[in-house]
């Protein structure tokens, strides 16, 4: 009897979760800003398909609980349950990371590489594709998006909880940081 009850309870639980969270339906609401499969078609919006699951979960929950500032996302995620956020993170983490390779001038690449080798490589890898456990892919991420994100890390007006990344950005001038973003944006692998 107890076993039956347990099975029933489990079945009901998953049913309730489904009624609330059909992740494909939820994930499709992201496409008009982040692109189908999370591959963005607009320079200011990040690609999110193929980012690490834990990173995705963390940033969305930080926004939800007001531990991290954002322009748009902090409002969007507050409407989702933690389970839905986890499901979205799992969903996008399963998509392949698809670099959108952006061309830039050889001089800009040299300038970017200088900054990257000096400051960023340790945590992001040389091409932005081999990041630390807690950092996201930067290879083929939109450079414009990254420039905006770096402005947030630099500005005192945004809550950006990762202390090390915040510290790192202050080691680079705004122009050098932007060049580094363009360098990462031009990486195909």
């Amino acid at each position: 009897m107890r076993r039956i009850f347990l099975v029933l309870a489990l079945v009901c639980l998953s049913f309730a979760a489904q009624a609330r969270t059909d992740v494909t339906i939820l994930a499709r609401t992201c496409n008009n800003c982040h692109g189908v499969g999370g591959v963005s078609a607009g320079a200011s919006m990040p690609s999110i398909g193929g980012l690490q699951r834990d990173y995705l979960r963390r940033v969305m929950k930080q926004w939800k609980y007001d531990e991290r500032s954002a322009i748009t996302m902090s409002r969007i995620v507050k409407g989702f349950s933690d389970d839905e956020i986890d499901a979205l993170a799992d969903y996008f983490a399963k998509q392949p990371w698809t670099p959108v390779v952006q061309k830039t001038s050889p001089e800009a690449m040299d300038k970017g590489l200088a900054t990257v080798s000096k400051i960023c490589t340790d945590c992001h890898g040389k091409a932005g594709s081999d990041p630390d456990v807690d950092a996201p892919n930067l290879n083929g991420q939109w450079a414009r998006y990254m420039e905006l994100e770096l402005e947030k890390y630099r500005s005192g007006e945004f809550k950006m909880p990762h202390r090390k990344m915040k510290k790192a950005i202050h080691e680079a001038s705004p122009a050098d940081a932007a060049a580094a973003a363009r360098y990462f944006g031009a990486q195909s692998k």
């Binding site: 982040h34 607009g42 200011s44 322009i71 414009r144």
Partner: peptide, 14 residues
């Protein structure tokens, strides 16, 4: 302003 443009590109493509 930047995000508005990124939104437009994505929603047209969507």
């Amino acid at each position: 302003v930047d995000y508005a443009d990124g939104w437009l590109r994505n929603i047209l493509s969507d």
